[in-house]
């Protein structure tokens, strides 16, 4: 129970930080915001890596491997495409 309270605390505070930070993003950057935030949501790759690397259950490991593939597409693709877009916004200045 104690641990759960700590996780909930982190969750609620992070939501507030998210609202504070993201309301300041101008509309011009809303698409890069989505793709960049999307890349960050690929953080689930961290859990996927542990699942794919623990051999306790092979089914779990294979599911973990599929999860690593999906999450890595999300992370690598997301950050790269965001970078591509942001450089277009920047080059004119």
């Amino acid at each position: 129970m104690e641990a759960f309270i700590i996780y909930i605390t982190v969750f609620v505070l992070a939501i507030f930080v998210g609202f504070e930070v993201i309301t300041k993003v101008p509309p011009t950057l809303h698409t890069p915001l989505m793709s960049g935030a999307n890349a960050i949501s690929g953080i689930t790759v961290v859990g996927a890596i542990v699942a794919a690397g623990s051999k306790e259950s092979t089914v779990a490991a294979i599911l973990g491997c599929v999860a690593v593939i999906m999450a890595t597409i999300n992370v690598v693709g997301g950050f790269l495409v965001t970078n591509r877009m942001l450089l277009m916004f920047k080059k004119k200045k």
Binding site: Y7, V10, F11, F19, V21, I22, M34, I40, V46
Partner: peptide, 22 residues
């Protein structure tokens, strides 16, 4: 929450908030 991993909770919340604002 499943893994008890704060970095997932924090990153997920940030993205959740961002999507909700948009």
């Amino acid at each position: 929450f499943v893994l008890g991993n704060n970095v997932l909770i924090i990153a997920g919340s940030l993205v959740g908030a961002s999507g909700l604002i948009l």
